[in-house]
Design a protein around this nucleic acid. Structure first.
Lengths: 184, 184
DNA sequence: TGCAATTTGTTGATTAATCAACAAATGAAT
DNA sequence: ATTCATTTGTTGATTAATCAACAAATTGCA
């Protein structure tokens, strides 16, 4: 698994880090490939060895974080005992620059919709086996419920970042947990 | 001038940074090439592309900083007007990890003697044109004077680092300046 | 001392990164 | 609309870094 050439990893890490840093200052569209190369201390051509263009780079960057969130989620459902495992908000916190750039800046609306899509997908999976439209939500549309609480979750995350994380991750996790328990 | 391949600079920077960081924990002799490679995130073989062995690496690292100090000194004597330029102690401060590792730890006595040698050489140059053994120090041995005040300077620097820089660079610069003015 | 494990320094084949140069596309100002 | 400058994406030749494998040297420990 860990047979990827060290240079590839280093280059990609540097490039991704550079994009995130630059995005906290500029709009994504105003960032040039040369900007990224300079910040990453990498030849401009090197970027094209790994990505089609800067949009492909952003896509890959986003998808990578989405996948991380997915894995965290899977790990959680496996070890559903008393979990001292890493939560989503822990992950958000440790990648503050990425998420706040993505959510706070208006330069990347791509991410918000992709994130929402994934959250909804995730709610489906967690609530798997039990039909959402039974119990508390009998008679309601599944799509409405998913959209409703998916957006709610994303909104809470946005608030957290735009207000510079006014409370620790586990508090957010707990409060949102209560709201979800009550409604799903 | 700036025609050195970017990869060379990156590798060397990473390697040098790694050594300095490791030296703040371990004795230099206990550090293996593999340790350095791991920390620098570089293949072990890469180190041998740039240095003979770890002692050569340490030598080059030391000599590089000595040269920086030399250039600072030359810059100072050129612009001997009101100088807002970078002083030695400014440089010491901005390379805290290197100098404190080198002076505080007992793992690298190489540096102290090299540093002393350079300080003495430097006093000679600054006092150039005027014979040291004239004026205040008439009748004294030049060698004794140079050794005396060279060691004094190094001792002050050592004190500064071992006590975690208890006063700002310009204060050190000023106080040592007074002591030198009085004696040379 | 002697054995085992680690570290060293070097090798050659392979792959990635660099650089310079290019035409094409884009953008901004006149 | 036309110019000028910047940015883009690609090219091929060159250089550096990687990896695995090796024997030799060194270390640590029984």
């Amino acid at each position: 698994m860990s047979k990827v050439d060290r240079r590839i990893i280093k280059s990609q890490e540097a490039i991704k880090k550079a994009v995130i840093e630059l995005m906290s200052n500029k709009n994504f569209d105003d960032i040039t490939i040369q900007d990224i190369a300079d910040r990453a201390n990498v030849n401009r051509g090197t970027i094209y060895l790994h990505y089609q263009d800067k949009y492909d780079l952003l896509d890959k960057l986003i998808e990578e974080h989405i996948n991380e969130l997915r894995e965290i989620c899977e790990r959680e459902t496996e070890t559903d005992s008393i979990n001292s495992s890493v939560t989503w908000f822990d992950y958000f916190e440790s990648h503050y620059l990425f998420f706040s750039s993505m959510l706070a800046s208006k330069g990347a609306p791509f991410f918000r919709s992709r994130f929402l899509e994934f959250v909804i997908e995730d709610i489906k999976n967690v609530e798997n086996g039990w039909n959402i439209t039974e119990g508390k939500n009998r008679g309601l549309s599944a799509d409405v419920i998913l959209q409703f609480f998916g957006t709610a979750y994303v909104g809470a995350v946005e608030w957290w970042f735009k207000n510079e994380m006014p409370c620790p991750p586990h508090v957010m996790e707990e409060q949102i947990g209560i709201l979800f328990e009550r409604n799903l």
